[in-house]
Design a protein around this nucleic acid. Structure first.
Lengths: 214, 214
DNA sequence: TAGATTGTTAATCGATTAACAATC
DNA sequence: TAGATTGTTAATCGATTAACAATC
C-alpha cells in the first residue's frame, strides 16, 4: 500500500482528509480541486497534493479530484475498507466509553470482547451485546479468536504486562490509553492516547495566551 | 512564561518530559544529565537541551539537571503549578469517563460541573460529588462560576453551538472531543482529541506493517 | 584545578511551500 | 482547442542534530 516510509505528519493528516471528504460527499459534492479543499481545511493546496501523491495519483489535471473516489481510496490507505476487530482491556469508565462509542462501528471497527480483572466488573453487561470477560481468560480467547488489535485502558502499572500478554497471543496493533510508553517488537504498532498529556498541552496553551489569569 | 512562540512539537514533548521526571523523582533520583535522560526517553540529548532552553537555563554545567527542580519548573511552564477548574459538556460515556478520571485531579485539574441536555441524564449522580446539570443553565453557571476551561464531549452536530456559548460566557480553553474543527477567536485555545482519527492512524500503521493481513 | 555537562551556535536534515511543465 | 489543475521538481523554511566554547 505505502511505497517508501511515510512521515508521521502525513499519516496524521490522512484521517482529517478522510473526514472532510466524507462531509463533502454527504453534501453531494462531486469533484473538488486541491485549491478549494485547501481553503476549507486551512492548509495549502501544495500540501494536499504532496500528501496524496505519496500514495498515488488520485486526481486528474484540469478537473481536480473526484470526491467519492478519493474518499474510498483514502479509506483503503487507512485500512478501513474492511472489518477491523478489536478487543478492549479494562472495563473502567474509559474502556466502557470506548466500547460504547458508536462512531467506530461506522468506520468498520468492531469491538468483539472486553476484559477486566476486577471481580466486580467481570460478567457486567455493557448494553452493546458485550459482557466483561475475566482478564485471566485473555489468552484462551485470543487462541480461539485471533484478533490483531487491542485497546489498553487500564492504569499504567498493569499496562506493560498486559501488552506483553497481548503480543504473545498475536496482537499486532495496540491502542494505548495508559500513561506509559510501551516497548514492543518491530512488527507491533502502537498508537498512544495520553489524555493527561493532552490536557497539559491545553493548559500550556491557555496559560501562555493568558499569562495574567489566576 | 514563554518568550517567543514555541513550536507545537516542543509543546507536545513537554508533558512527556514531565512524566519521566516525575517517575525519576519518585524513584529518588536527584540529578540527571541530558545524556542519561535521552537514553531513558529515546530522544537525543541535543533535543532535550534545545527544548528546555526555549524556556530558560534549568541546568548547571558539569552537573546536569536537578530532577525535582526541573520537574517543578516544567510544571510551571505547563501551568499546572496551580488549580485549574474545568467543566465538562456531555454526560455520555466519554464525558463520564473524563469526569471520573482521577489522574487529572492529581495534576491540579478539577472538574467542577458537568452538563447535558438529555432529560434522562440531568440530575444523575456521577459518584464523584457531581450531579449532571441542565445544559440550558450553562450561561447562568458560568456567570456565577467564571471557569475558563471546558471539555466538549458531545456529538459533533451540537459542538459548534456549544463552543460558541462557552466562549460567549468567557471560556478560553476548549478540550474538544467532538469530531469537528472548532472555529474560535484568537484568544481562545483548542486542544483536540479525535479518537476516531487516532484509531484510523493505528489502522494505517497496522495494515502498512502487515499488508498480508485479512 | 580538571572533568563533566550545559547553553548555544552551526550544520544537517526533512517537511512545507512555490513554481511550472505535463496533461486532461 | 484553451483553460484548468494536477503531479512533480525546485526553493524555502523550520526543526533536529552535531559541535564546541563557556562554565560549574
Amino acid at each position: 500500500m505505502a511505497e517508501k516510509s511515510i512521515s508521521s505528519a502525513v499519516i496524521h493528516r490522512l484521517p482529517r482528509y478522510y473526514r472532510y471528504l466524507g462531509e463533502l460527499k454527504e453534501n453531494g459534492v462531486e469533484r473538488i480541486s486541491s485549491a478549494e479543499l485547501s481553503q476549507i481545511m486551512s492548509v495549502t493546496a501544495s500540501q494536499i497534493r504532496q500528501d496524496l501523491n505519496h500514495f498515488g495519483g488520485f486526481g486528474q489535471q484540469g478537473y481536480g479530484y473526484n470526491v467519492a473516489y478519493l474518499y474510498t481510496e483514502i479509506g483503503k490507505i487507512l485500512g478501513i475498507d474492511r472489518r477491523n476487530d478489536l478487543i478492549v482491556i479494562g472495563a473502567g469508565n474509559l474502556g466502557r466509553a470506548i466500547a460504547n462509542y458508536g462512531n467506530f462501528e461506522r468506520r468498520g471497527f468492531h469491538i468483539v470482547a472486553m476484559f477486566d480483572r476486577r471481580a466486580d466488573l467481570i460478567g457486567m453487561d455493557l448494553g452493546n451485546g458485550l459482557t466483561v470477560r475475566n482478564a485471566a481468560d485473555l489468552e484462551q480467547y485470543l487462541a480461539e479468536h485471533p484478533v490483531r488489535m487491542a485497546a489498553i485502558a487500564i492504569p499504567k502499572t498493569g499496562a506493560p504486562e498486559v501488552a506483553e500478554r497481548l503480543i504473545k497471543s498475536g496482537v499486532k496493533a495496540i491502542w494505548n490509553f495508559a500513561h506509559i510508553d510501551l516497548e514492543v517488537p518491530d512488527d507491533v504498532v502502537v498508537e498512544n492516547v495520553h489524555l493527561s498529556e493532552s490536557l497539559m498541552e491545553l493548559s500550556y496553551k491557555y496559560h501562555s495566551r493568558h499569562p495574567e489569569a489566576e
